[in-house]
Design a protein around this nucleic acid. Sequence first.
DNA 1: TTCTCATACCTCGCCCTGCGAGGTATAGTC
DNA 2: GACTATACCTCGCAGGGCGAGGTATGAGAA
Lengths: 111, 111
Amino acid sequence: MPEREPTLMSGVPELVLLRLLAQREMYGYDIARALKLLSDEALSLGEGVLYPALHALEARGLLRSRPRQVEGRTRIYYQATPKGCRRLARLTANWRRMSDGVERILGAHHD
Amino acid sequence: MPEREPTLMSGVPELVLLRLLAQREMYGYDIARALKLLSDEALSLGEGVLYPALHALEARGLLRSRPRQVEGRTRIYYQATPKGCRRLARLTANWRRMSDGVERILGAHHD
DNA sequence: TTCTCATACCTCGCCCTGCGAGGTATAGTC
DNA sequence: GACTATACCTCGCAGGGCGAGGTATGAGAA
């Protein structure tokens, strides 16, 4: 099956994860913090969303991971693959399309 | 249970339906057409989304309906209730918050 | 007549995904 | 020894989006 697109339902987690991890390598806990900070609290993925999403994306070949030991703790760093970057581009376009659509409806004045 | 808010997952259908029906009375088929037109094809709710959504919103007291006979065909006109309008305001605010959040992340350049 | 198309409504059931709740382990601090 | 912060994980529910399929009418074509 050839890469399901989210239809209307946003798939926001996938989008923002790919975006962050296309820029630089990050690990789970870090991502959660960055997300809250960057989005001014508006987007906070709980761990029940975050970790399963990371696993799923990796399984689909959109991310790759490598564990690292830092001060006795294990961190798992994720990074977007080329395939992940391509998908990011598509998802971003989709997001804009649908976001613009919503905005046009919200802003529509009846004549 | 006191009116669940959609957390991250957008709940776009609810939002746009309330918005349209806060402006003027419309019936299902009409809504579908308006949505496609206004959003430039970006937002097309299939009937499997549309009708169940309308029923659910009415059951929650956010819409009210009245059937009308037009040229031998039955149309069911929906309109947002005051309660629906209040909810629309809240959902709109939520949408903007989360939409801005996503935009900030998409537009973020790493330093 | 019959067929097909546009209008207009509806429901069933799948499936995915978001999410809360809960669980484990280490390092450092009080 | 207790508590907080870091860091990972899973289970299972709930809800909602969506395709597919179903009914009926009116208008126009074949």
